[in-house]
């Protein structure tokens, strides 16, 4: 009982410290506010379930990224069976979660990232979070050199996507 309480306290501490990971992953993969809250909840639940198997010698943030991205990517696949009407609405919202974002640059980034394929989004997220290539490779299961190559291509594409920003602004204003 006492051990369980200790574990809960430790988990809560680590989750609080790294909550930005849950927040950002959910925001990149969810469609709308409700979906985002569901995804955040799903991620935290999976983290808690897996926590007893967490190896202290590994970085918690890397472990957390793996789980959060796995949950989010599985959710993206599940969403593919949503009714066509809901899908049409989603098509109008190409970016990440269209919630109000006070920083226009971040809003633009989310919009641009949302146009990437789900697995590419994962890599971009890690890149923007300034994770070392070795960490990215560990989270995704790629080699470090492969990560480097892919990051180069994704940065170039992101730069192109960001040049379409004025169009996205209008869309974001409409949605928010």
């Amino acid at each position: 009982m006492r051990q369980n309480e200790e574990r809960q306290r430790r988990f809560a501490g680590l989750l609080t410290e790294h909550r930005r990971i849950v927040f950002k992953v959910a925001r990149v993969y969810a469609r709308g506010e409700e979906d985002r809250r569901d995804l955040e909840q799903d991620i935290v639940l999976q983290l808690w379930r897996a926590f007893p198997r967490y190896d202290d010698t590994r970085r918690f943030s890397t472990w957390m990224y793996r789980i959060a991205l796995n949950v989010a990517l599985s959710g993206v696949r599940r969403d593919a069976v949503r009714p066509a009407s809901s899908q049409e609405l989603d098509d109008q919202l190409p970016g990440g979660t269209p919630i109000s974002e006070p920083d226009e640059r971040v809003a633009q980034l989310y919009q641009a990232i949302g146009r990437f394929e789900p697995l590419d989004r994962a890599l971009l997220l890690l890149y923007l979070d300034d994770r070392p290539h070795a960490d990215m490779a560990d989270v995704l299961g790629l080699t470090v050199s492969h990560v480097g190559t892919k990051i180069g291509r994704l940065k170039e594409r992101l730069r192109r996507e960001m040049t379409d920003a004025p169009v996205n602004h209008r869309r974001n204003d409409h949605v928010a």
């Binding site: 609080t16 909550r19 909840q41 799903d42 379930r49 599985s74 959710g75 599940r78 006070p102 920083d103």
Partner: peptide, 28 residues
């Protein structure tokens, strides 16, 4: 811009509280 957002997220205590209170089903 991304790191500035991190700082903003860190200040959102309400977010974590809401997450804790809002018990949902583990879908996957």
């Amino acid at each position: 811009a991304w790191s500035e957002m991190d700082r903003r997220v860190d200040q959102q205590d309400a977010w974590l509280r809401a997450l804790r209170d809002d018990r949902r089903t583990d879908v996957l």
